[in-house]
Design a protein around this nucleic acid. Structure first.
Length: 367
DNA sequence: GTATGCTTTCGGC
DNA sequence: TTACGGCCGAAAGCATAC
């Protein structure tokens, strides 16, 4: 079997690049795109910024007031996120990608895997030109730049992509995997979070090379069959996950900031009700049922909590969401005395089956 | 013990 | 002087099943 050739394309500073596209005259100024909560004129957080703004220390997730402070004295421009517009641009690019790949897997609004094995006949030499061709075509049609990582699988393509941004193109051939991965810290691997990183650290495993030196039996003994085997392979750049269009989202949720901090259940539920309307409108198009209702709350000090419950049987009604959310909030309020700043609600664990009409008992009765 | 499912938290974008 | 989003899936922590 020949090599696979997998591309990961990641759009550069996407939201801010979209704003540049809409308003090219701003291209040489710092641009910040943020989510405004509506509490005060400038209350909110930075979603992303262009590289000029980043030079001044602006980072994703930082409070907007801090970004303003860092950009004082510049001609910085601030925008609220316009998700609809970014999605429209993203969709156009994704459509182009589909023409260039046998299989395409959209990971997020600004990221996609492409399996181009057939198109380049398994050749990484050809993949370089091919990747450049895709970049050129997207630039021509949509005027958006992005970074590409190429590897024999998704795992390697992803890490390759991360290694050089923006407008980068990094190709890792099967021969190069060892040298490429060896010196990198283990937490660059999907599946190595803070806890597992700490555990590995205590075992003297710092780099991917360190991980590759641990024998498979030991990995399985420590991390279990699944995870142990996964780490054994990942450290060697082995990953057989196919590139495939991922299905529908696993959950639908909405979150929002309250006008003022509160512990008043009726104020909270008023907000939740609006969010449920929104969730429900999206959910209704799926013709599915949900088995999970969840809430989340962010306290005055910005610490977050969430609660959820799995329903006895799948449901599809708005009322079920409302009742479930109310129950969870009432219970939650008895567990904390702090005021709440933001609230959210979500549904998930979607199932295709209709909610069952018959009880088990009636099945027995009828037979 | 390991696998699995449910729940909460984490973290990337 | 103050001022901090909203999504999602992955990771992690349990409880229970096997």
């Amino acid at each position: 079997m020949q090599n696979r050739v997998v591309i990961l394309a990641d759009f550069d500073y996407f939201f801010a690049q979209c704003e540049e596209l809409r308003n090219p005259i701003l291209k040489d100024k710092p641009i910040v795109v943020g989510v405004y909560s509506g509490r005060t004129e400038i209350s909110g957080a930075v979603s992303t910024s262009n590289y000029i703004a980043r030079k001044y220390g602006v980072k994703s997730g930082m409070p907007i007031f801090l970004a303003i402070r860092k950009l004082e004295g510049t001609e910085a421009v601030f925008f609220p996120v316009d998700h609809e517009y970014y999605e429209e641009i993203s969709d156009r690019i994704m459509q182009i990608f589909r023409n260039y790949a046998s299989d395409m897997e959209q990971v997020s609004i600004d990221e996609a895997y492409l399996d181009v094995t057939e198109q380049v006949q398994g050749s990484f030499e050809k993949a370089k030109n091919y990747a450049e061709e895709i970049k050129t075509e997207v630039k021509k049609q949509v005027s958006i730049s992005f970074t590409i990582g190429v590897g024999p699988n998704k795992l390697v393509a992803k890490i390759a992509c991360d290694s050089q941004k923006p407008d980068g193109l990094t190709i890792i051939t099967p021969d190069e995997i060892g040298c490429f991965l060896s010196p990198l810290p283990v937490d660059r691997l999907l599946g190595v979070g803070k806890k597992i990183n700490a555990k590995m650290d205590s075992m003297g495993i710092i780099t991917i090379d360190d991980l590759a030196k641990v024998d498979i039996q030991k990995l399985i003994a420590i991390f279990g069959q699944n995870l142990g085997l996964y780490f054994y392979n990942a450290a060697r750049g082995i990953d057989n996950e196919p590139v495939r269009e991922s299905g529908e989202a696993g959950s639908i949720g909405r979150m929002g900031t309250l006008k003022e901090d509160t512990r008043d259940i009726s104020v909270i539920m008023a907000k939740i009700k609006e969010q449920i309307e929104d969730i429900y409108n999206e959910f209704i198009t799926k013709n599915m049922s949900f088995r999970l209702v969840g809430i989340s709350a962010v306290m005055t000090d910005l610490s977050g909590k969430s609660r959820s419950k799995t329903l006895d049987k799948p449901a599809k009604g708005k009322e079920t969401i409302y009742k479930g959310a109310r129950e969870l909030f009432e219970k939650y309020l008895t567990e904390t005395e702090r005021p709440i700043r933001r609230v959210g609600v979500k549904i998930g664990s979607f199932v295709k089956e209709e909610p069952r009409q018959k009880q088990i008992t009636s099945f027995f009765q009828s037979s």
